[in-house]
Design a protein around this nucleic acid. Structure first.
Lengths: 119, 119
DNA sequence: CCATATGTACGTCAATATTCGTACAATACG
DNA sequence: CGTATTGTACGAATATTGACGTACATATGG
């Protein structure tokens, strides 16, 4: 596991909100919320590798995601347990809001920012 | 009522999260959540007037607060109904998290960033 | 070992955010 | 009207963010 993951108790609300206050990262969380681990490059498209690395860092350091190397890839997953423990209900409320179209991320259930599907 | 307040349907999640991703503004929301209208200058102290104006703008334009002139003062209030309608549960979850100490805003129930009290 | 695939690190660049001081506008109060 | 109070507008200084290209590190697979 990569370092720079804050402990659960170190996760601060303002950092999480700040991290999720970006449409691109909000979209990523929406995709990861499906569960399991996702390959870095499958979550977003049309963005340079270095830009992705930047966003993974923000999400990781704010405590929103786990990032784990696997082979030469890098798997991402939502820190759902920690987030639920620290901010009960927050994730559910956010996902509900995103899915209801209350953001620029997902008008009505699709994932317009990227093709997270594969095969 | 000052202009630049978005309609309820125009309030976007990422803008609200971005606005609340700042400890100072998160604190303001916490204070306003007590209900009613609050005088601009009573919500925060130790910050210049122009800086406050800036933060009111961010909160107003993201749809988090109402701002209403009254005499030579300016009253602020939380757009609770609109936020609840657009992002059901979000405000409650956030306030709960802040009050539980999951942010740098309020360690345990006090309001360390300002003396919002008055007589 | 060598080539390929996958990401990170670093430097750069433009845009945005945060803060402040000063000047100004509007209201209240005498 | 003149003064004080309250807040906005504007410009400046600085920090942070978001994006990218290039170079590098690591693992896979021949």
């Amino acid at each position: 596991m990569i370092t720079q993951h804050p402990e659960r108790e170190q996760i601060l609300l303002e950092n999480v909100l700040s991290a999720l206050g970006n449409p691109l990262r909000l979209h990523v969380v929406r995709v990861l919320a499906a569960g399991g681990e996702h390959n870095c490059s499958n979550v977003l498209e049309g963005v340079s590798k270095s830009t992705l690395t930047h966003h993974w860092r923000v999400l990781r350091e704010s405590g929103v995601i786990w990032q784990r190397p696997s082979g030469r890839e890098n798997l991402l997953s939502l820190r759902r347990e920690d987030l639920d423990a620290r901010f009960p209900g927050l994730l559910d409320v956010l996902l509900e809001a995103v899915n209801s179209g209350a953001s620029s991320v997902a008008p009505h259930g699709a994932q317009p920012m990227a093709d997270a599907r594969r095969g």
